[in-house]
């Protein structure tokens, strides 16, 4: 997956090629991926394939006009939460009222000020993020924005089931901040929170897109690595460990913080090893990493390391 594909998708539906060109040029430096279509019907088809973060919608289009497109979007449960900014040459308040009543998030009249449109787009993207966050709130850790324990439990059960059923490789790392209590006691809880948030950011930037980083609780994190055997997974976690020890923390620049990790993985089907048994084994490896001197990764293969598999 390229970087561009990770950017939020902004879908422009406007029959004017000029508007396509102008927005493409003016949004070039925004962290978004712009897809431009000229017909409402094509826009709706695209939305069904790939959900945009924001839709920029012209009203005055031949065939299917913007109101019809807006109505169709809002009538569909799968698309009704997508923020829609109406771009229109229709200045009448009646059109604006209709657009807002149909569920538009914003209304920008043409010719639009592109700086203002960019600002409105950013606001709509913020709204999109908040809506998604709200939907996922039950599964999100408030301090870090990562999935919480509940989220981990769900995703982990899915991945173990896939590994068992399809023989996909799978790895799990339990990651713990070394001597975290000392950070809190010496530099205060805000410094401790900063470290936890820093680890979360590191997880988000170091991991590959299919990986699922979660805050397991306290200063402990879990990293699910689908389609990844233990050797490759060890490289990912080792990279994370190395990156962590390089971080200079603003509140305590002379005090580096390190990570220990216990990792367990399988190159093929994990047989009857249960979710809890995986966790148990990863915890044992984490314990070994701590007792081996911290700031290290201890990894093993679930098949060889877990005798319960053979017994089953």
């Amino acid at each position: 997956m390229s970087n561009n594909e990770n950017k939020p998708l902004v879908l422009l539906i406007d029959d004017s090629i000029d508007v396509h060109r102008l927005l493409s040029a003016r949004l070039r430096h925004e962290p978004v991926r712009l897809v431009s279509l000229t017909r409402g019907v094509d826009g709706l088809e695209h939305v069904r394939r790939e959900t945009p973060s924001v839709i920029l919608l012209d009203l005055d289009m031949p065939d299917m006009d913007g109101f019809e497109v807006l109505r169709a979007l809002k009538d569909d449960q799968a698309t009704n939460n997508i923020p829609v900014i109406v771009l229109s040459g229709l200045h009448g308040s009646e059109d604006k009222v209709t657009a807002f009543d149909l569920g538009a998030t914003d209304y920008v009249t043409k010719p639009f000020d592109l700086a203002e449109l960019r600002a409105r787009l950013r606001a709509a993207l913020r709204l999109d993020r908040l809506l998604k966050l709200l939907a996922e709130r039950a599964d999100v850790d408030g301090l870090t924005g990562l999935g919480n324990r509940a989220h981990f439990n769900k995703r982990w059960a899915e991945k173990v089931a896939e590994c068992r059923r399809y023989g996909h490789a799978l790895s799990l790392a339990m990651i713990d901040i070394d001597l975290f209590k000392k950070v809190n006691d010496t530099f205060g809880h805000p410094a401790g929170d900063e470290v936890i948030q820093g680890v979360a950011r590191l997880l988000q930037t170091t991991c590959r897109s299919p990986d699922v980083p979660c805050r397991f609780g306290g200063e402990e994190f879990a990293l699910i690595m689908p389609n990844t055997g233990p050797r490759d997974a060890e490289m990912v976690v080792e990279r994370l460990r190395e990156a962590m020890e390089q971080i200079e923390w603003p509140r305590h620049p002379d005090h580096r913080v390190t990570l220990s990790a216990g990792l367990v993985g399988s190159d093929s089907s994990c047989g009857d090893v249960t979710c809890d048994q995986w966790l148990e084994r990863a915890d044992q490896n984490l314990y070994a990493a701590k007792h081996g001197g911290r700031n290290r990764v201890v990894a093993s293969d679930i098949q060889r390391a877990c005798p319960l598999t053979k017994a089953a």
Partner: peptide, 19 residues
Amino acid sequence: RMAHQLKGASGGYGFPTVG
């Protein structure tokens, strides 16, 4: 329709008086 599109686009290209 052409006038409508020109109205919408010209300002964006920096020609507001055309728009």
